[in-house]
């Protein structure tokens, strides 16, 4: 105890504590802001899909239903936590936490605006791919532990789907890495500024396409929502979950969408920067802060998710596997070859 105290009063150790405190505060701010966006992403989804289907969406709670997410959150908070008989209890308890943790920790390396990134590590992209694939543990463990046929089938399907599209996603980002010459997300954003369009989405259009399709499949969204297929598997791997545990899975899914959207924004749409051709026409836009651009682009991608969900019917499982293995992977390889050839010639 004395030793610890002596260590604490040494000059320099106070600075370390201060650093840690600053990082903890930053993390708390990021998590709080993202959770707020998750709550309102559910509201946004219901509104968007409602209007696309000529309905009104939620509108009873608060003006235009704006307090609906708060009401939902309170309801889930007070709901009974049912653990099915003969379920594998420790695994059942932990699976949603694993899902949430895997989804949240990807946010550690995303640069939200210039200079604001919690961990500026030089393998940021690899870190996101690694951590987001940990989320599939949460899925397969919950499917296994619930002791229900629907959960089990949903978990299996989800696992096969996530790992199939993981390959395509990993390959689609190689083109970005070649062009940026780095795995650090901040440097990837900076590298895009030197290209005429100000974003990699134009030279890497093939990679962008593969990435977006794989991202939709990775987050189990329609039209690739087979693991949750309401009309056949009721809710897939989390059918037995209720109350707060269900809320954690639900939040993890939306955080996953936000992470994939943020990754698309940083790798393909230029992150927090403004494309040069926009400021050439409207010079006053240069004064808009970077975080506004980032969130604007992110919400465009999220809107795109909802749009696709409202437009396309669900794929069959064999079609899903065909798209993943026979179309997206060859396309991603072709993209790598084209990028490599262009890089060698130019």
């Amino acid at each position: 105890m004395m030793k610890l105290f002596e260590l604490l009063i040494q000059p320099g150790s106070f600075d370390i504590l201060l650093d840690i405190l600053v990082v903890v505060l930053k993390i708390a701010v990021v998590i709080a802001v993202v959770m707020l966006h998750v709550a309102y992403a559910t509201y946004f989804e219901r509104k968007v899909i409602g209007h696309m289907q000529v309905r009104m969406g939620p509108r009873e709670v608060g003006p235009h239903g704006l307090l609906q997410p708060v009401a939902d959150m309170l309801k889930l908070f007070f709901k009974e936590d049912i653990i099915p008989a003969r379920a594998d209890k420790p695994v059942f308890y932990l699976a949603p936490v694993i899902s949430l943790m895997a989804a949240l920790s990807s946010l550690a390396v995303i640069p939200f605006f210039d200079g604001f990134v919690i961990a500026d590590i030089n393998i940021g992209l690899l870190f996101i791919l690694a951590v987001s694939s940990l989320g599939s543990y949460g899925i397969v463990l919950s499917g296994w532990a619930s002791n229900s046929k629907y959960s089990f089938l949903g978990g299996l399907r989800s696992m096969a789907q996530v790992i199939s599209y993981e390959v395509a996603m990993g390959l689609s980002l190689v083109g970005v890495m070649i062009m940026a010459g780095s795995l650090n997300l901040t440097e990837i954003v900076r590298a895009q500024a030197s290209y005429p369009a100000g974003m990699f989405a134009v030279p890497q259009v093939l990679g962008f396409f593969v990435f977006i399709v794989a991202a939709i499949a990775e987050t189990n969204r329609a039209p690739f929502d087979l693991p949750e297929a309401e009309s056949e598997l009721v809710a897939g791997y989390f059918v037995e979950y209720s109350g707060m545990r269900f809320a954690l899975f639900y939040a993890a899914e939306y955080i996953g969408m936000i992470v994939m959207g943020a990754l698309a924004v940083t790798c393909f749409l230029g992150g927090w920067t403004v494309p040069g051709f926009v400021t050439a026409v409207l010079p006053f836009l240069e004064h808009v802060p970077g975080v506004v651009w980032f969130i604007g682009k992110l919400y465009f991608i999220i809107f795109f998710y909802y749009w696709i969900r409202a437009t396309l019917p669900r794929y069959r499982y064999d079609q899903l596997m065909n798209i993943g293995w026979k179309i997206l992977i060859p396309l991603a390889l072709v993209n790598i070859l084209i990028t490599g050839i262009a890089k060698v010639i130019l």
Binding site: A28, I31, F77, L104, I118, A119, G243, M244
Partner: peptide, 20 residues
């Protein structure tokens, strides 16, 4: 910071469950 983030994310999930 990555380790801190992992810890805080796990604490957030567990904390929400315990509060509930």
């Amino acid at each position: 910071p990555v380790v801190l983030f992992l810890l805080i994310a796990a604490a957030f999930g567990l904390g929400a469950l315990m509060m509930g």
